[in-house]
Design a protein around this nucleic acid. Structure first.
Lengths: 220, 220
DNA sequence: AAGAATTATGTCAGTCCCTGACAATTGACT
DNA sequence: AGTCAATTGTCAGGGACTGACATAATTCTT
């Protein structure tokens, strides 16, 4: 095994037997892990248990995932990749903020399929709360998001024909946008688990508050 | 030892010999740790080495810090506490965004003293790059920042007489603001280590880009 | 279709982070 | 001085991870 594709980039499938098997193992590991996490909590689940549930050795687990956090966040990372792809396919004429906004909404629409290819939707939904309530996972998730944001900033800069090193606006915009998205998903998670449709709605509502929140006077 | 005060809340000093000794031990651990991290890198430094450098047992180290990350971020947490305090002492009449803006600037001004009470300023400065280049530390730092942001949001809500659970603006504003601050300190760190004055300058510059970055049209 | 070359997996040993339990020491208080 | 409480050290152990090497499974070659 020279390189296992991150959850992020899943190539079109060169699909020999070998590749199919690896994918199956990987998906099984994710499913086993999420089920155990959901049942016993993240910290009280050991990697040995996950490996055993997926019928591989602990060593193999670590060949698929760099650490315990990575398996917990695997699906999230796949959705992140979707988001980045969505932004790349927004029309070039669109202004930066609208492009980001529409890209997230596109993502929520397309996420279902990506998720259900690996785990039951409901199991994935439960991981949002798990992440939020597990310090180590939240930390890993935030770091992962900061990488996504870097990618978004570069893409925005490219769209606008700017040098992201010279003009701070791409990074500033994406940082503000990313902050609002985090707050949105957190609020959504706290509202006791609505579906992807509710998330979509909240996203719109929160993004619409960005302008007003920056305004000088909040008493309107 | 019933409770060690987090770096955050450092009480006025009831100062018996016992308290003074604890403080000295804590500061020594921080200094030893940062020196080792700076010299050998975070991951290649073991807790045993830190403990030995500070002349305490490994077990004692873990009574002062919940984990290795915490000692690396101890000073940052102290500065965070300064920030929160700075916001609380902004005049009530000030609008939310200006209050946050002035609070950071006040913080950068007052930080020097807090830092130098524990470690040489230059040693602290080097930790910014360390955090940025150490995945585990960056993750922990981002998580820590998200807690700070929650505190800021609650304070903004209080100032404005709002229920933060009902009105999303406090959280949205703080998330956007926090995002920009992260980008700012990162850019500052990458510009090969200027001083606190440069950081202050960059803060102003980046915050001033927030409005323009959200604008529809970037071509002005 | 059989063997050679790759690649994936398992086993083992070891390091490091972190924790609970208990004993020993040290400062506080009368 | 003597008691009480808080701090520290020692020890044993669990769990995340890694490097090294052997084994087994695919793929490639002829």
């Amino acid at each position: 095994m020279q390189s296992i594709e991150g959850a992020a980039a899943r190539p079109a499938a060169p699909s020999g037997l070998r590749e199919r098997k690896k994918r199956r193992t990987r998906d099984t590991l994710i499913r086993s892990a999420l089920e155990l996490f959901s049942r016993k909590g993240y910290e009280r689940t050991t990697v040995d248990e996950i490996a055993e549930a997926a019928e591989v050795s602990q060593r193999t687990f670590f060949r698929y995932f760099a650490n315990k956090e990575e398996v917990a966040l695997a699906i999230q990372s796949a959705v992140d990749a979707l988001f980045l792809a969505a932004l790349r396919s927004r029309p070039a004429a669109e202004a930066p903020l609208p492009a980001l906004r529409e890209a997230v909404l596109d993502t929520w629409d397309g996420a279902r399929a990506v998720i259900e290819a690996v785990v039951p939707l409901e199991l994935h939904m439960r991981t949002y709360g798990l992440i939020e309530s597990t310090p180590q996972l939240l930390a890993a998730r935030l770091r992962s998001l900061s990488e996504v944001e870097e990618g978004l900033a570069l893409e925005i800069a490219r769209r606008e024909g700017l040098d992201p090193h010279a003009d701070p606006r791409p990074h500033v915009l994406v940082a503000a946008f990313g902050g609002v998205m985090r707050v949105t998903t957190r609020a959504w998670g706290e509202r006791g688990e609505g579906g992807l449709d509710d998330l979509r709605e909240l996203t719109v509502a929160y993004l619409d508050q960005l302008g007003p929140a920056l305004a000088e006077n909040w008493r309107t």
